[in-house]
């Protein structure tokens, strides 16, 4: 057995490794922010002069919808679930709103209908997961097809009336005050504060962690998981719909599959941000940084001029590496 005197251990680099592990485990947001800064420095080195306030504004603007979708994943993953229907629900929301632009109710009615439809989808998902105990992966995957199908039906119904992304959504989604600060922060900041405080300081937030950590214990303490889960999937779907509206405004397009490609990045952002897919561990702060990291990383890979396949490979590799690192630091030795 190797002997290490205290003096030796003090000089031993192993101790710093432990310190790092603890830092990663308890405050993942600090090393993640460091990683984000490194990426920014790299992109600056690759293309000097690119980093500046306008660039930061563009990155922020692109990150907002991804961060909201990552919020959906954080909330559901905390309970040991996942929400793969965010893409379909978000696309549906943007699309439905666009079809109402020429109606008497205008875009306001469109947004109301879109959010209601999303909430309804979330309710069905929540009942499936909470009451009928369908695995969230299956339930939300199934729900994403249902929502896509219904959106297609809606598309056929409304094909004559004409559609377009309403101006207020474009303003929110792509507008930047002073040419820098994205207007979408007006939506995002209150949402983020709500989620962060909700997770830390409300009974409901505690229950999300509790159900993910140990459903039996939560039940024995009097929690009825189905109530928590139904509310959870409604909240997640509404958040996804809001993200969909912003994406629609950002890209000035409305299509039933607009946001589909963001589903896995949203999971990735949550995982990079330190939320465990096994439940009971994580938070939204990390996911926001995770979304920023992914956006900057995409920008970097574009600047470097890597072809799309290489970008995908790198993207996937980074996610796997981060997930593996978390598993190592959070496991009890």
């Amino acid at each position: 057995m190797s002997v290490a005197t205290p003096a030796e251990r003090a000089r031993n680099p192993w101790l710093t490794a432990t310190a790092w592990r603890n830092l990663f485990r308890d405050r993942p947001i600090i090393p993640l922010t460091g990683l984000l800064l490194v990426l920014v420095l790299v992109i600056q080195a690759v293309q000097p002069g690119i980093v500046g306030l306008p660039w930061a504004g563009v990155i922020l603007r692109a990150s907002v919808p991804l961060a909201i979708l990552a919020g959906c994943q954080v909330l559901t993953m905390l309970t040991g679930g996942i929400d793969l229907s965010v893409g379909a629900v978000a696309s549906m929301a943007g699309f439905v709103t666009a079809t109402f632009v020429n109606s008497p109710g205008g875009w306001v009615l469109g947004v109301a209908v879109a959010l209601s439809a999303a909430a309804l989808a979330g309710l069905v998902t929540g009942v499936g997961v909470g009451v009928f105990r369908v695995h969230p992966l299956i339930m939300t995957l199934g729900m994403s097809f249902v929502v896509l199908g219904l959106a297609n039906v809606w598309q056929l119904q409304t094909v004559q009336t004409g559609a377009g992304v309403p101006d207020p959504l474009r303003w929110i989604g792509s507008g930047q005050s002073l040419g820098i600060v994205p207007n979408s922060l007006l939506v995002f900041v209150p949402l983020a504060v709500l989620i962060l405080l909700g997770l830390r300081r409300t009974g409901y937030g505690r229950l999300l962690f509790a159900i993910g950590d140990n459903p039996v214990a939560a039940r024995l303490s009097g929690a009825r998981a189905w109530q928590v889960l139904i509310v959870l999937y409604v909240v997640s779907a509404v958040l996804a719909a809001i993200a969909g509206l912003i994406v629609s405004g950002l890209s000035n397009t409305a299509s039933v599959s607009l946001v589909d490609s963001s589903v896995l990045p949203s999971v990735a952002a949550a995982v990079i941000g330190g939320t465990s897919i096994m439940g009971g561990r994580g938070g939204f702060g990390g996911a926001i940084v995770g979304a920023l990291i992914l956006t900057v990383l995409t920008a970097l890979l574009t600047v470097v001029g890597l072809p799309e396949p290489s970008r995908q490979i790198l993207f996937g590799a980074i996610i796997v590496a981060v997930a593996a690192a978390y598993t190592r630091v959070t496991a009890e030795s």
């Binding site: 405080l197 300081r201 409300t202 009974g203 409901y204 505690r206 229950l207 962690f209 509790a210 950590d213 140990n214 214990a217 939560a218 303490s221 009097g222 929690a223 009825r224 109530q227 009971g280 561990r281």
Partner: peptide, 23 residues
């Protein structure tokens, strides 16, 4: 809740009912 704190574990029953879901 093995991954949660002593505090959250002790306070768990207080948060269980819907009326205590708030702040």
């Amino acid at each position: 809740l093995m991954q949660r704190s002593v505090r959250e574990n002790i306070a768990l029953p207080f948060t269980a009912r819907i009326r205590n879901w708030g702040p």
